[in-house]
């Protein structure tokens, strides 16, 4: 029978190799004990500080009067690869705003935290926070309603996460930013 394994080289393990291995272990041990240079943290007492672009639980941003910036355009629900955003739209009393979500649910069990919804939003009405621990007791609890998404980050003290159109990493793109930069109308080039 043919052999399926071809032996290229057999390395001999001598007593020196054992000592070399032990040195790696011991050096890390002493660095942790005496220099306090640890790799792990004591979760949940301690929490790691995540990047500015961390994609955690979504935040629905608000106008100054507390109403959602969202206009229920459904672009986030359209792009969502997990089909986890459920929106119902209604009439806004102000004719200039016209459309407002009456329901905005995100099923966190389905969500894959890709951030496409944030990219798609033309009004920066949906951004992401740094909240990541999402264990719930029941499936129903994992459906976050509009009320929760609007106030959760403020209430629980989570920082803003992924927010591509704003901040140091932002590249412009919202209507307000375009006007600030003196760009009028659409910017698409032929």
């Amino acid at each position: 029978m043919e052999s399926y394994v071809k032996v290229v080289k057999v390395e001999k393990v001598g007593p020196l190799d054992t000592l070399r291995g032990l040195w790696v272990t011991l050096s890390n041990f002493f660095r942790t004990i005496f220099l306090r240079n640890r790799v792990t943290i004591q979760y949940p007492e301690e929490e790691r500080d995540y990047s500015e672009r961390f994609r955690g639980v979504h935040i629905l941003t608000k106008h100054e009067d507390g109403t959602p910036k969202c206009t229920a355009c459904f672009l986030c629900a359209t792009i969502c690869p997990a089909d986890c955003i459920h929106i119902e739209a209604g009439e806004h009393p102000n004719n200039r705003v016209e459309k407002i979500p009456t329901r905005f649910d995100i099923d966190m069990l389905r969500c894959v935290f890709c951030g496409y919804c944030v990219d798609a939003c033309p009004e920066e009405a949906i951004i992401m926070s740094k909240e990541y621990d999402l264990a719930t007791d029941t499936r129903e609890e994992s459906i976050f309603t509009m009320e929760m998404l609007l106030n959760r980050a403020d209430k629980l003290g989570f920082d803003n996460g992924y927010r591509p159109h704003f901040g140091p990493l932002g590249g412009g793109g919202t209507r307000g930013k375009m006007e600030e930069a003196g760009i009028t109308g659409t910017t698409r080039k032929k």
Partner: peptide
């Protein structure tokens, strides 16, 4: 696909 010449 033109750039608008009229401001918002």
């Amino acid at each position: 696909l033109h750039n608008s010449r009229i401001g918002l």
